[in-house]
Structure formats: structure tokens, C-alpha cells
Design a protein around this nucleic acid. Sequence first.
DNA 1: TCTGGGGTCCTAGGACCC
DNA 2: TCTGGGGTCCTAGGACCC
Length: 417
Amino acid sequence: MFAIVDCNNFYASCERLFRPELEGQPIVVLSNNDGCVIARSNEAKALGIPMGAPEFKFRQEMKQKGIHVFSSNYPLYGDLSARVMSVLEYLSPNIEIYSIDEAFADMRGFNHFDLNTHGLEVREKILKWIGMPVSIGFGSTKTLSKIANRVAKKTPKSGGVFVFDSQQQIDNVLKKIAIGDVWGIGRKWSMSLQHCGIHSAYDLAQADSTWIRRKYSVVMQRTQRELNGENCISIEELPEKKQLLVSRSFKNKITNYQLLRSLISGYVARACEKLRKQHSVASSIQVFIRTSPFNDSPKYSNAGTVSLNQYSADTATFIKMATYILENIYKDGYEYQKGGIMILDIIPDSKQQLCLFQPEKYDSNARQRMKLMDHVNNKYGRQTLRLGSESKKRWYMNQNLLSPKYTTSWNDILRVK
DNA sequence: TCTGGGGTCCTAGGACCC
DNA sequence: TCTGGGGTCCTAGGACCC
């Protein structure tokens, strides 16, 4: 048995938490750079604001309809997420944090529990202690628990919790779930399946398995098996990242190499922080830059990768590599709209193969420096210590509608009269 | 004027090896 | 005239997720 806990309209709920007067009001949260809508409260959904809507196209409409619009505030969301996750130990000892607002729980061994009651209790705790509304679904596979979660969310009388218990009940629900709403079936596959007469989750469960495998892939076949109660996707506790990506769209188009370089350096620094935080090292880095795909100005996009013959997590080393790549792919005369870096070939620090001619893990001086830098930055805030090549402002983004960092910044703490 | 960011897994095809 | 069989590794691209 699995459970999935999913925060309702997470980002919108976070913004509402410190602005209780917004309860019942429509809210949307914008992507980085205030580009497009990435989260909506139920009220905003009801007013017809689509997911992914470009902000500038809907600005008038949102204003007119009295929708409260926020820039995304990741320090706030990250902190509230961590608080919600910490309460989940009351649900099960074995939790997999699946995304910022979702976690799976391994419910094996809970056979003698009344899962519905148990779920309702945990839901109540999270609501009371954190103020975050969540939905919880229980099913015999991850895919079925996702569907149970959907039922919990859409059925008010469920109280936010739904448990699949009989096959009859599963069949009845699956018949009502549109194929595109199944976890693992996206837009492309959904269209194709419907073309073949498969319209509901039930249809997919009943379809010929070898045909699914042949026409699509093992991936979809797995989803089908999961719908039929066969466990194919297991719980993984905090899997380490195999690649790390940091990329941003720029506030204004960039035509200046120096600025681009300093931003790219900042991205590298951020990625290396993440790398060290998960106690890993890596040997390759990729840098990419591109012009806007949306306008008529000349298009250019390029990327380059370099590898080291040694593993490292040293920011300076990776910045050097990134700069080398950038020098090679940068071309004058274009208006760059986006750039990013990817750290590849990541392995746990403890498992690295030492080099025959350099029988030391990455340079111990560098290691010391990074340790110090992380320590200072954890204590006094990001970029308190940074490398000279990094831009002072790491992101170069629009965030015109940003809410305070209520829970992570002393300066932003809520004042109560 | 203005269109997000960060991940995973699988497959096919090419280069290369013996 | 006729030119094998069995592998590995890497990369790019396409699907998916939140």
C-alpha cells in the first residue's frame, strides 16, 4: 500500500498563509522572471486563467477580475515544504519526497490500521500546525494512489482523504478518469491513445499489454500494470541527483559578454553548492546560451561540454571550465535571452575512483575553501562569500510582485501590532 | 516590451571493439 | 560474385513528471 500526500494549490496556499484576508480570493503565482502563470488558487482556476498563461497577455484580464498576482518566492515555498514534510513522519516512517509539494509514503505494515482515519488525522495535523491544506490518496501502487489523491481532492465530502479498498471500487473510479489524467500519460500519448479508442484509465488497464509495449514503450506498459495493481515503481528515499541544471531567462536581452559570463559563473556556483550539499562530485559541465525563440531577431543557440580527468566539487574549477566553454560558443551580435549550465557525470564523493597520478580526492585546499564558503553562506546568507567572477546579483530577473520571505529572513518577519 | 525551471527514463543510431 | 556476429559506450532526442 502507498499513500501520496499532495498540497492543494501549493504556491497559492503559501502566499495565502501570511495573508489570511486572501482566503477565498483568487491568487496566481508567476514563474521566474514573472513570465507566465505556474500556480492558481481554485478561485483563479474558476475565473478561467489557464496554466502557463503568459503574464503580459493576461495582465488586463487578471487586474479586471481582481486576481492577486505574486512573483514566485522560492525561499518561502521551500521552507513551508520542509515543514509539511517533517509532519509526515506521523503518516509513515518511510517517506519519499517526490517534489516540493508532494510525497509518497510506504504504507506496508499498516494492514491493521484504518487508513482513512489515519489519513484524516495526519491531514488535520498539517492543517493545524502549518496551515497547509493537503489531500491524501491511498492505493496498492503509486499510480493508483495518485488517482485516489485526485478523488480526494475533487470530492469535498471525502474530507481530503480517499482509500481504494475493493477492486469493484477501483474499476468504477478508473472508468471516470480521463486517460490524460493518469500519472505517466502526457499530452502526446493521451492524444494517440484516444485515437486508438482508449479514453479512460479503465480502457488502458484493459488494453492488450503486448500491443501497448510494441506501439508505445515499456514505460507505458508499466503504467498499465500499475493500474492493474501490479507494483512496478517503488519508494526511493532521497535519491541523489544524477545531473544538476541551473538556468534562467534574463530580465533584458544580453549583448554583453562580460555580463553573460558573470551570470553563468553565478549559476555554476549555485550548482556546485547543490553538488556539495548532496555530498557528490562530478567531472563534466555543459554550458548553453540561446536567443529568444519568440521574436524575429536573429536566432542562435549553442552548447558545449567539457570533462575533467578528475572528479571535483570545487566552484573555481567548474567556473574555469564554464568560462572556457562560453568563450568558445559565444558569438557577438546576438541578443541572448537565456543561458544555463548543467553539471553531469555526478557520483557520490565516497565512491570516486582515484586517479593513478594524483592519488588524492579533489584538491584538499579547494575542499577546505569550499567547506568554509558553504559554512559562511549558510550562516550569513547566500553569496556572503562568492568568487570574483560571479555577478553580485546572481539572477538578473524580474520579480516585481514578490511577497516577503516571512519564514527565512529576519527582515521579513511578520509584524503584529 | 513581456512566454519558467529542474528533473527522470528510454530508445535509436553511430562509433568502436574483438 | 560472395564479406559475421556479438558486444559496449556515448549522444541526441523524445516522452514524461512537478
